Amino acid sequence: DGVVLFTTPSITDSLGFPRDMWLGRSFIDFVHPKDRSTFASQITSGVAVPFSETKGGYHKDTRNSLFVMLRRYRGLRTAGYGVTANAVSYEPYKLVLSFREAPEERNDNTENMTPNSSTMLLVICATPVRSIYKVADETLSQRSTKFSTRHTISGTLTHVEGSSVGAFGYLPQDIIGRSIMEFYHPEDLPFLKEVYETVMRTGKVAGASFCSKPYRFLVQNGCYISLETEWTS
């Protein structure tokens, strides 16, 4: 049912919530509404391995990860004689999900501990995602982030690697299904047309790829970054 049973003290440093404020509440309540379907689908299709595949139980070593926006603690601020809530804000996090068996229960008739096989716990390790940029117009040649994307021949994005979040500002689910053309700078389109023509030619050779000169890509804050790409088809 997704009810939170335990949190670590670091939740206060990361999101500002008092440690016990999450207890007894559903985890998904703290996930941004736009990311809730992604979170739910990861649990049902990615983490919960069917019983038939694990000899009647969950696979203990199963791990899956995704990116979501988690809500920060709003707190309260004073305004004259009244108290008003701060605006709701969210921050990007990488979640690593895994299922574990519930702790053993003590048998009242014996001193032995018996496994509570009917209950499984979902363990979530949340790590904040930070921007890779420190200053404006920064060159990242010495510590550039590598990631991959895939799009169809019509330009629809079908895969965006999670390591791109710190560079793009978008979560993968924010741009999957959108056209790659939305993110190219208009002035770079003639050059990119030549790139795609080259991709079509080299694509006739299995495993062939080539690197293009930098082009501009629209990121979440409305600015453009310069990317160097190894293209393949």
Rank of each mutant, 00 (worst) to 15 (best):
N107V: 07
E230M: 02
H59D: 15
H32A: 12
L122H: 00
V219Y: 13
N109W: 08
T8R: 03
R178K: 14
V4N: 03
Y224P: 01
S45T: 10
A126M: 02
G203N: 00
V96M: 13
G166A: 01
S148D: 13
K134N: 15
S144V: 07
I28H: 02
C211H: 08
T156P: 05
S65R: 04
I175D: 12
V3S: 13
M181T: 14
G155E: 01
G75T: 06
T156L: 11
P214V: 01
Q142K: 05
G24C: 03
S26G: 09
G16V: 07
V31W: 03
N109A: 11
G75H: 08
Q142D: 15
L70F: 06
K134F: 13
R25F: 14
T54L: 06
L5V: 10
E91R: 00
T38K: 04
K134P: 10
M181I: 10
F67I: 05
E187D: 14
N64D: 15
F191W: 05
L5Y: 09
E228C: 04
V205E: 15
A126Y: 03
P172R: 02
V96S: 14
A87L: 08
R19D: 15
Y170N: 07
S233I: 04
T152E: 13
N112V: 07
S26C: 10
S45N: 14
R216L: 08
A85P: 05
M21A: 11
D13H: 01
S41V: 06
H185I: 03
I28F: 01
G80Q: 01
S118D: 15
F99M: 14
F191R: 04
T229F: 04
V31F: 03
S148I: 04
V165Q: 10
K60A: 15
G82F: 08
I175P: 12
Y196S: 07
E138M: 00
P128Y: 03
T202C: 09
T7W: 08
E194I: 00
A79G: 06
V129K: 04
G46M: 01
G75A: 06
V123P: 11
L227G: 01
C125H: 09
D61H: 02
G82P: 03
L171N: 11
F210Y: 12
V129F: 10
P9W: 01
S131V: 03
A102H: 04
L192S: 00
I11T: 01
Y73V: 06
T229G: 06
V129D: 15
F6H: 09
D108L: 02
S212C: 06
A102F: 03
C223Y: 13
A206T: 08
T119S: 12
E228H: 00
V47N: 02
E111N: 08
L15F: 00
Y93W: 12
R143M: 14
V4T: 02
